[in-house]
Amino acid sequence: MTENTQYMTSTSTTTDASEARAARDHRHDMWFRRTMMGAGMLVLVLLLSIAGSTLWGGSEAFRTFGFGFLTSTQWDVVNGQFGAVVPIFGTLVTSFLALLIAVPVSFGIAIFLTEVAPVWLRMPIASAIELLAGIPSIIYGMWGLFIFGPFMAAHMAPWINDHLGALPLVGALFQGPPLGIGMLTAGIVLAIMITPFITSVMHEVFRSVPTTLKESAYALGNTTWEVVWDIVLPYTRSAVVGGIFLGLGRALGETMAVTFVLGNAHQFSASLLMPSSSIASVIANEFSEAYTDLHRSALIALGFLLFVVTFVVLAAARLMLMRLSRKEGL
């Protein structure tokens, strides 16, 4: 009788301890889930707060100029006339030029590192890419202003004007004085800046392709290009597109490097050799000297427009990645 009582007591104690442990684990799991949900919601709150604060700060400019703020090319601080067309145009053009140059170069470097380069050469080049990614943007801007800009004015711009400026249809894009600074110079400097980021992403995802797939393709007689085009790219295209848009996001918001080499001129020109301005460079140049409420509001409104442009671009990238993922699932 005593043994049965002791056994029942021990069993009851073990059951109570198990229930207490389960309740404690459930409570800790709930705390963990709520903490993680709070962290996730914090991102949305910050996003909405940034958008709301910039929209509120730029409300005076939007009320004063209305839709004309998005269609006007004027930026006259003295007379209080502000338009966002030139900064938006400069931001989009320089970012597009940067992608146009950086994507093929990044693709070539990543393929070289994963498929072509000897083993002893891969580590130095990969380390150099990481070092380039860590250089501050102001260093790129100073290099562009003092080194690349004069080289552009003395050698590249005259050749571009003489040879590409005479082409039909697109000749107007390459006509202009050899100033050395302008949208083309800014696009090239931006391309140099974002190439390490895109290359790093492409290199990592190309390395994730199973070796058996590539070896099977080589065993069937495919060349290196065929393996890359038919095996590597289809396997990694979603991540590659994501890396490209990551570089685009960096180019859209770049400030200091573009400020040094873009020219900061509020004039609309179809020529890539002419100076222009970007949203980030205008804000960086003029915010400390904005002495009227309307001027400050116009600059904050530009910041809101940059937020909208970046959000639209990244949202389009997300939709593209979702479509690619669905196709891969099929």
Rank of each mutant, 00 (worst) to 15 (best):
L145G: 12
G249L: 01
S297W: 15
I160D: 00
G253R: 02
A270R: 05
M202E: 07
A166K: 08
G263W: 00
L294D: 11
R237D: 03
H26N: 06
A251L: 01
A186P: 04
V86E: 07
L302C: 06
F96K: 00
F151V: 05
V78H: 11
R21G: 02
L213I: 07
Q175R: 14
S137Q: 04
P275D: 08
E328V: 09
F32I: 12
L113M: 08
G57K: 15
F96P: 02
M183T: 15
A257D: 06
L131R: 02
V86T: 14
G176W: 14
A133Q: 01
S53W: 13
M202V: 05
I125K: 05
F69P: 05
F62V: 08
T14V: 05
W143H: 01
L97M: 05
S53T: 15
S276M: 04
M274W: 11
P210C: 06
V227H: 04
E60C: 00
R122T: 05
A154K: 12
L330V: 13
G52S: 14
G38C: 04
G242V: 08
K214V: 10
L113V: 07
L145Y: 14
K327M: 11
S10N: 13
F107N: 09
R33H: 10
L47T: 14
S297V: 13
L70V: 00
A22I: 12
V261T: 06
F311Y: 07
L324W: 11
D162P: 02
T310K: 00
E215C: 06
A128L: 15
W31K: 08
T11P: 00
S12N: 06
F65W: 08
V308M: 08
L306C: 03
M202K: 04
S106K: 01
V77S: 08
A22Y: 12
L113E: 05
V105A: 15
T11D: 09
V78P: 04
A102S: 12
S208Q: 13
L97H: 00
T71L: 11
N4A: 15
V103N: 03
G83I: 10
L272S: 05
F307R: 03
G176F: 12
L97A: 01
M123S: 10
L55D: 07
L299R: 10
T236E: 13
L179G: 15
V261M: 07
F89L: 01
V77M: 09
G149I: 00
A284L: 11
F307E: 03
L213T: 10
L121W: 04
S271T: 15
P158K: 04
N222K: 13
L262W: 00
L132T: 01
L272A: 05
V43N: 02
E3S: 11
L132V: 02
M256Y: 09
T224K: 14
G68Q: 10
L100P: 03
E115C: 10
L121R: 02
A257I: 00
T35Y: 11
L44P: 04
F197H: 04
Q74I: 13
L47M: 14
R326W: 12
W225G: 01
V241T: 12
F206T: 08
S12I: 04
L42C: 13
